[in-house]
Structures are given as C-alpha cells and as structure tokens.
C-alpha cells in the first residue's frame, strides 16, 4: 500500500474523521513493509540486529519512533546491497563483525551497547583523532547512514520533523512560527 492508496482507503473507511496522530501512525508503515516481513538483502540476521541496536542508540525512541521504528536498519541493508560497490559494503560489514567480536556479549546488553556506541562517538569526534583509523571510518559511515536514513524516512520527515507545505512563498519568518525544523 502506498501513501496515496492509504489516504484514499482511510478516506473511504473513516470519512476523514481520524485524528492526525492516528493518521500519521497509519501512514508511517506504508513506504516499507512491516519489519517482520522484510527479507534481508545483504546482512545476516545477527548483523542486521546489531546494526539496528546501534542505530537506535544514536537515534532512540522518544516521543517519536527511533531509528529502527523508522526503518533505518532496512535502509542500511538496502544501501549495502544496492548503493555501495560490493567491496565497500563487505569492508563495512567486516568492521561490524570485528566490533561484535571485540565486545562479545556487551553488544547484546542495551546499557553496555549504549556505552560502547558512546565511546565510539567520543573517539570519532575527539580533537586530533585519526581519520584513517578503520574503526573510526566505520563508525562515521554508520552514523552518516543512520542520520541520512532517518531524516529521509517517512517517520523522520513527517513525524519527527515538519514537512514544509507547498504554496508558501515567505523567505523571512519567525522561527517560532514553525517551532521545529523543516525536513525538506
């Protein structure tokens, strides 16, 4: 079901009486299949779960869904399968495996994982860090994918941020008129 079909069906069934939050909740799942139906394209189930857990540490659930709720784990699997050259994707996954191997059971415990991801982030953005360090390159690529995947997802664009409406020509307004950032 695409967004347009979803809107027309909701219109038919509910006569347009659904609240905005229910509507956005219904629409949130439309662009990608439900998580349990997703067929992995590049990652193993273990790798996919670890990517999702790390991504959700970077962008967690708040009053809006986090990275996994927005489908960022599926987005990353898709990009590894269909965007990057194969060698680049395999290199990325080899660093993911090395990360899993190095930290063993810690990556399965949310609190430990949070500390691990925080440490990676501190290292990657510390003063004088080595841009050539493979672990830092891996983490920065992961973070880039999480951020770009989240803020170009339907959840990220329509729920977390504001979709800029069409038809407004004003280029100088008070930021308070909008409150939160445009997503587009």
């Amino acid at each position: 079901m695409n967004r347009r079909e979803a809107l027309s069906r909701i219109g038919l069934i509910a006569g347009g009486t659904l609240s905005a939050s229910t509507l956005s909740g219904l629409l949130a799942g439309c662009s990608t299949p439900p998580a349990q139906d997703y067929v992995l394209q590049f990652l193993s189930k273990e790798q996919f779960d670890l990517i999702g857990s790390m991504a959700n540490q970077i962008i967690p659930d708040t009053d809006t869904p986090g990275a996994v709720g927005a489908g960022v784990d599926r987005f990353i699997d898709n990009m590894l399968a269909n965007y990057y050259p194969a060698a680049e994707s395999h290199l990325f996954v080899s660093h993911l495996d090395a990360f899993a191997l190095a930290y063993g059971q810690d990556v399965k415990d949310p609190t430990s994982l949070r500390n691990l991801v925080q440490r990676q982030d501190d290292a990657a953005f510390s003063a004088g860090h080595d841009e050539q360090d493979p672990a830092i390159q891996f983490y920065k690529k992961l973070k880039g994918l999480v951020v770009s995947g989240y803020y170009t997802s339907e959840v990220g664009m329509t729920t977390e941020l504001n979709l800029k409406p069409y038809g407004d020509s004003r280029m100088d307004i008070s930021v308070e008129d909008v409150g939160i950032s445009w997503s587009n």
Binding site: K164, D168, S169, R170, M171, I173, S174, D177, V178, N184
Partner: peptide, 10 residues
C-alpha cells in the same frame, strides 16, 4: 538571526 527562518523552498 537564530530567530528567523523561511517557509518556502525558493
């Protein structure tokens, strides 16, 4: 100008 923004994709 942190209090200013825009509403159009010009």
């Amino acid at each position: 100008f942190n209090d200013r923004y825009y509403a159009a994709s010009r």
